[in-house]
Design a protein around this nucleic acid. Structure first.
Lengths: 266, 266
DNA sequence: AGTCAACGTTTCATGCCGTGAAACGCTCAG
DNA sequence: CTGAGCGTTTCACGGCATGAAACGTTGACT
């Protein structure tokens, strides 16, 4: 969307609205010297904002105030939306630097749900990471392991317990406590998650196992306040790059991205 | 402010913003068929809204979403602002019908604070009801009595107790339990508040008593959920109209106004 | 009562800039 | 490989946003 010019008249209106949330109860004269806009223009803007019930005028002193109805309009506070909004531009920049796509995942029960991906920005064609909403295996994928290894022991126990209930394909190892402990230990020591050799592709519910999709991934957790809230992926095709090369050139960027998102969420 | 035209470009931008809070995650095509605006125009609007951090674009599917940062921008939830915002247009219409000014007051401790006035709309010159923020005597004024007589007995007891602590001028009757009881009984029976003959003007802190300012008032409580939250006044000059005449012609309108505000606050 | 300053409101000529139809190009599905 | 669907860019037109200036009203002060 470069090449698209923004609309000045709209910009000015939003300026005034913002000024009124900063200085509630400003008079026309005050708005004039705050925004620098001519009074005639301000009058038209205020008329428009008032018609839309974003602003109202107190009769007592003629002051303009932001409407309390703005609060009603706001959509339900979907917590993950805030995460995606903050992570989205960071992931865009990450992709621009390393040129491999990423996904952002959060835990849903005992799986990882993909809530954002920068794949459309990566100019690697036909590397179809699933759309948002797809659930990813927690024990074998890079994102899953990054989350699983860095969350607290209680949360890990809860996840394992859930897995044992329905035992989806690819979650057989949930029964092997020794295997789980070793996987966690290795991931923690390494500092990032890696896919298992026996990885199951990121499948829609009910799809069968994939022995080898030709891809490899690493993933780092996003930790805010000592708690893991999500994990970021980096995926590449094994025929185009070795794991060693990607780790050497991209792991730092991936970690920085995770840290930046964590900072924004704090 | 009639004669002021609103700004179409701003209107359209606000339309899009509103559409996005109704349908979070809309694509350009969806916004096109929701708002009816050409896609080129939408692109410019979305660019502007994105620059102002009111909207952001999810990379995964290119959908536009309202920013969660909007919540941060909102000023502190001043409860009385909502009341004034709802009451303001109602009072404007009331004044247009009866042509006498009103005040809107809420209880602050043991006084009534004026939080809105339609006096500037009444074309009665030099009837200087105080500016917003002025405190009015609770026992002798019409607004005060309307509030005092229709709030619960516990609240009345608290108010009286506070008054006895510092005994401001005009609050001497707080000591006379029998007088209070009779005043409350009469006001409740009448259904609206009236000024006392010994009324003290609406004075700034420290100003002296006023024996007769030539005005008279009636006031009705605003009751929502069985609880009084405020009271509305109607003031006139005694040399221009008798109490009987004003009560006959205006009391109904005053009561309707109070009911309308109560409905809006529910 | 009279005067003056401050503020909000209205007017109107100017040309900027918002507008939208149309052409283009990309991505994905079949 | 082909086509459809969607986002993006272009460009010429004229509607409409603009703001300086004149005007009306309000409130303060003497």
């Amino acid at each position: 969307m470069p090449g698209v010019k923004s609309i000045r008249a709209l910009e000015r209106g939003l300026d005034v609205l913002q000024a009124l949330q900063t200085v509630p109860g400003a008079s026309l004269r005050e708005l004039h010297q705050i925004t620098g806009l001519p009074k005639a223009t301000l009058l038209r803007i205020l008329k428009t904002l008032t018609e839309r019930n974003l602003v109202w005028q107190r009769m007592a002193d003629g002051a303009y105030l932001p409407s309390s109805r703005m609060r009603d309009r706001l959509p339900a506070p979907a917590e993950n939306d805030r995460l995606v909004e903050i992570a989205s531009p960071v992931m865009a920049r990450l992709c621009e630097r390393v040129n491999w796509p990423s996904i952002l995942g959060v835990r849903i029960d005992d799986q990882i749900e993909v809530i954002e991906t920068n794949r459309p920005r990566s100019h690697v064609p036909h590397l179809p990471l699933g759309p948002v909403g797809v659930r990813v295996n927690m024990l074998l994928s890079a994102v899953g392991r990054a989350y699983f290894a860095f969350c607290g022991p209680e949360e890990r126990a809860e996840i394992v317990a859930r897995m044992r209930l329905h035992a989806r394909p690819g979650e057989e190892m949930a029964a092997d406590t020794a295997w789980l402990a070793r996987m966690v230990r290795e991931t923690q020591a390494r500092g990032y998650g890696m896919r298992d050799a026996r990885f199951l592709g990121e499948t829609e519910a009910g799809a069968g196992p994939v022995i080898d999709d030709g891809r490899a991934s690493i993933a780092t957790p996003i930790i805010v306040g000592g708690q893991v809230i999500a994990a970021i992926n980096l995926t590449w095709t094994r025929r185009a790059a070795t794991a060693e090369h990607v780790i050497e050139t991209c792991l730092g960027d991936l970690r920085e991205a995770a840290a930046e998102v964590a900072l924004g969420m704090a």
